[in-house]
């Protein structure tokens, strides 16, 4: 039985900060894991009228238990429509999706994402991971893209080992020149806080820091030089007690996605 009064762990913090990015009445493109938790948390609190859509095609399912697969019944539970996969990505291209979430194994200073491998050589990687799935499609086509993951210097790197998905490519205007649509990632969320991208160089910049995190301490968790915002750095809001309780009792009662992995 989990301790309902324990302080929020980093994954619960992530879920909360992520949920805050969602506004009511939006169409939200969701993957499994923490984004799913955030979607349900937002739906149960400040955004009861959002519409969730999934890459396997489910449109506006009734939320219930947590899906283990993007194709599993919870992603199309009582959905009025289920689209083919090529059409579900087209909804991003055609401007229907308001916000999308993506995870990463590595993210770099320009918000480019790697979900392919550790190591530079595709034919002989150190570790092969999943590859793109829908990651590249959403990154290429979405306007309001939120990247989420746990922050370490190995994951926040100067240059991703393999560029699965383009954020701001090499900074400046390079994303647009490469022909991609949408504005690129708007925010990166980790247990350290929130990061945005400086408008001209498109380099990652601290936006807010979670309680207990300083700029210098956060820099130690980052494999490249972070930009500092002007003025005092705002504090990332803490998850309120009632929402933490909701998260633990109703959203993810078995702690499937919000239990910290043990070594």
């Amino acid at each position: 039985m989990k301790d309902l009064s324990a302080p929020a762990n980093p994954l619960e913090m992530l879920a909360y900060i992520l949920a805050q990015q969602i506004h009511d009445h939006q169409i939200v493109y969701i993957g499994t894991g923490i984004p799913m938790i955030a979607g349900i948390l937002a739906h149960k609190t400040h955004a009861p009228n959002i519409t969730m859509v999934y890459e396997s095609g489910g449109q506006d399912p009734l939320p219930k238990d947590l899906p283990w697969s993007v194709g599993c019944p919870f992603t199309w539970r009582k959905a009025p429509a289920v689209m083919e996969m090529s059409y579900s990505f087209a909804q991003c291209y055609n401007g229907y999706v308001d916000i999308a979430f993506l995870g990463f194994a590595q993210v770099d200073m320009y918000g480019n994402v790697n979900t392919h491998q550790i190591g530079k050589d595709l034919l002989h990687p150190k570790v092969r991971m999943t590859g793109s799935g829908g990651n590249n499609d959403l990154a290429s086509l979405s306007d309001n893209l939120v990247l989420v993951g746990v922050q370490t210097p190995d994951k926040f790197v100067e240059r991703v080992d393999f560029m699965t998905s383009v954020g701001y490519l090499t900074g400046g205007n390079s994303r647009k020149e490469a022909g991609l649509i949408g504005n690129g990632p708007t925010v990166v969320i980790s247990q350290c806080g929130e990061f945005d991208f400086e408008p001209v160089t498109k380099r990652m910049r601290v936006k807010s820091l979670a309680p207990g995190w300083t700029f210098d301490f956060t820099q130690q968790f980052t494999g490249f030089e972070l930009l500092k915002p002007e003025g005092e750095i705002p504090q990332t809001p803490m998850i309120p007690d009632d929402m933490l309780k909701l998260l633990r009792t109703e959203v993810d009662p078995r702690g499937v996605f919000t239990t910290m992995p043990t070594a």
Binding site: S86, D137, S140, T164, A178, G179
Partner: peptide, 28 residues
């Protein structure tokens, strides 16, 4: 990407030599 291969298969169903896409541009 999932979307890229879905479009290639869809192009065959549509009866076209191929389609143009904005996915995968600039990536490895």
């Amino acid at each position: 990407s999932h979307g890229g291969v879905a479009l290639g298969l869809k192009a065959a169903q549509l009866g076209t030599p191929g389609v143009f896409s904005k996915q995968m541009l600039g990536s490895d």
